[in-house]
Structures are given as structure tokens and as C-alpha cells.
Design a protein around this nucleic acid. Structure first.
Lengths: 92, 92
DNA sequence: TTGACATGCAACTAATTGGTTGCTTATACT
DNA sequence: AGTATAAGCAACCAATTAGTTGCATGTCAA
């Protein structure tokens, strides 16, 4: 309901989390390590793996990221469904 | 540029600010007092005028609300332009 | 011009949050 | 079995922030 919206908007409020969505929307099925490496290298981000893991927890909670265990790895999937019609009520 | 986006997303992250946008998108040219009264009454919000004023400053900073002085009053106007295409890069 | 009303500003507080460090668990590979 | 790699968990810290209270400014109307 409306709390879903709140969780989504709050998830989008952080620039690092938006970068994560950018990366995942460009290339799905990244692992946590791959994602961290990409963020650090492509965007000169200095941030730890644990910090990224926390951001991912927030994004998963909002339904914007799903993940599957694949052996040793956890693989990340972007899900844009919650974003559709999110701003609808304000745009005509 | 990208900082604009950040300011906009952060502005949208607060539920009270989203309620303010709801009210203003429904009825433009409210004054601060009218807006406060509406929020308190329609949504059972217990919040002071000053708190609303702070939220409005954030929304104005993001370009989502404009205001004009009209004599004794300040009149508030909703502006949805910054919201258009905000999520575009993630939705196909 | 004086009082009432609408708004503006500043200092303070409590809660939230993004980040770190350190340790543990789980899986793969030789 | 033993080591290296990927991830999970928990406690702590610093900065941000939503909210409050108190006071100042500006405008209208009698």
C-alpha cells in the first residue's frame, strides 16, 4: 500500500543506491563482489563491500532488487516493476 | 545535472512532503496556513506550521513547489516538471 | 498607530542512517 | 583435509534530519 511507496522512495533517496540500480539495469546477474568492483572502478566510489551489502538489503526490501543464491555466489537482479506508475498521481 | 536528481529524490523521500505534493496537486495557490490546516485535518497529521515551512523549503529547493508573495500571504504552486522522465533510465 | 494575523529565522533535540571494523559462516578447489 | 574466496552478522560512530520552541519581521485593517 502506501508504506510500500515509502520504502521505495526512501530506497531511491540515496545516490549510491541509484548507482547500484544503474549498474544492475545495465548488466543483470552481477555478484556482490562484481558489483562492488564496478562501483569502485567506474564511479571512483570508495566504499566497502559491507556498505554495498547494506544498500542491497534496502533495495531488496523495496522490491527493486531480487537475488538468487548460485553456489558460492549470490546473484543480483534488477526489478523495475515497483517503479512503474510510481509518480503517476502527480503527472497529469 | 545529477545533483538536481539527488535533491529531487531526497525531497520525495519524506511522507509528509509527498502529502504536501498531493494537496498542492489537488488545489493550487494554497497559503501556508491553509495547507497546514488541510494536512492536520484531512490526514490527522500532528505537526507545526514551522515544520511544514521547512518541508516547503526542501520542496522549493527541488523545484517541485514555487511560491509567490501575495500581500500578507505566500501562495504555493505545485510544479511537476522535475518529475517528468525522472525514472526514465530504469523503465525500458 | 496599534493590534492581529501570516510568515521567517535560529538554536536545540532525538532519531535515523550511511559507513566502518571485526568476526563468523558457507562454498569451492587443490 | 585445508586453504582461499564469497557472503552474512553485529556493534559502534559520525553526520544528517524531522521536529520543536521561542522570538523577530512584515502586512493589513480599524
Amino acid at each position: 500500500m502506501n508504506e510500500d511507496k515509502d520504502v521505495i522512495f526512501k530506497a531511491l533517496a540515496d545516490p549510491t543506491r541509484r548507482l547500484i540500480l544503474d549498474e544492475l539495469s545495465e548488466k543483470n546477474e552481477l555478484t556482490l563482489y562484481e558489483l562492488t568492483a564496478r562501483l569502485v572502478m567506474k564511479h571512483n566510489l570508495s566504499i566497502s563491500r559491507q556498505a554495498i551489502a547494506k544498500h542491497l538489503a534496502v533495495l531488496e526490501d523495496a522490491g527493486l532488487v531480487n537475488s538468487m543464491r548460485k553456489g558460492k555466489y549470490r546473484v543480483l537482479l534488477f526489478n523495475n516493476k515497483p517503479l512503474k506508475n510510481l509518480l503517476e498521481s502527480w503527472i497529469d
